[in-house]
């Protein structure tokens, strides 16, 4: 059975700053690529097929690494940071857009702040230091480990977050009926479950072998969006 900690972290009200990001939907709406519920459905399918496997696999791999450290006898040997540095470098090489690298780190930093205060742990200290914060999947992986969740649960929260961010942004950006958006999310639930399970199943692999799906328009429109002077969402 899932724990209350799992529900807390998956909840959009958890203060991790995710509500400030539309995951590319704002740019897609402005370009006229998403205008209605059917367009949102196609957009979310794309996010699930391309972004979610990468985000969920890196979250799960970080969770697994952090949980193993958490079970090992407590010491602060600097070698413990190496697996996190590798995960960080591999995710960086998969995030070709500077705007998306920054968005990931800003969200990671906000999540880290909330996680540290909610589930204090020495595990957070292993995250690579970066002026803009740790990448969001790494921050989420360590936070889920600190909260005592399983690798499967960590992957699930990550995949779910990829869906819910743009879905709630769609209600604000397009004025869609929230009931219809919830119905759409319910229809995508099975696909989301499958992607989370696949991500958890590859968490033990070397970071180089983790998924690297690229969605050209995600990178392209993130950079175009970053040049806007006025925008509702940070990404």
């Amino acid at each position: 059975m899932h724990s209350t900690a799992y529900l807390l972290l998956a909840d959009g009200r958890f203060p991790s700053g995710g509500h400030a990001h539309s995951s590319g939907l704002e740019a897609a709406v402005a370009a006229g690529r998403v205008t209605d519920l059917a367009g949102l459905e196609s957009f979310l399918h794309g996010r699930l097929s391309y972004a979610a496997p990468v985000t969920a696999a890196f979250t799960a791999a970080t969770h697994l690494t952090a949980s193993r450290l958490g079970r090992a006898p407590s010491h602060t040997h600097s070698d413990n940071k190496v697996p996190f540095l590798t995960l960080d470098a591999e995710l960086e090489a998969r995030t070709v857009s500077p705007a998306l690298r920054l968005a990931s780190r800003r969200q990671g930093r906000a999540l880290l702040r909330a996680g540290r205060l909610t589930w204090p742990s020495e595990l957070y200290a292993y995250l690579p230091k970066h002026p803009d914060g740790p990448h969001q999947p790494l921050a989420l992986g360590v936070t889920t480990a600190a909260a005592g969740l399983s690798t499967e649960e960590s992957a699930h929260i990550a995949a779910y977050g990829v869906l819910t961010g743009p879905a709630s942004a769609a209600v604000r950006l397009l004025g869609l009926d929230p009931y219809q958006v919830q119905n759409l999310l319910a229809r995508l639930a099975g696909a989301c479950d499958e992607i989370a399970a696949s991500a958890a199943a590859v968490a033990h692999k070397s970071p180089e072998e983790l998924p690297a799906h690229a969605a050209p328009l995600a990178d392209i429109s993130a950079e175009i969006h970053a040049t806007w002077e006025v925008r509702l969402f940070a990404s």
């Binding site: 196609s42 399918h45 050209p216």
Partner: peptide
């Protein structure tokens, strides 16, 4: 010796959303 680029582009009917607004538009 350090990762510079990892990218895998998938297209085709086996991948939901591949030609949609989040990927190729």
């Amino acid at each position: 010796g350090a990762p510079l680029l990892r990218q895998s582009l998938t297209v085709g009917p086996a991948t939901p959303g591949w030609d949609g607004p989040a990927v190729l538009g």
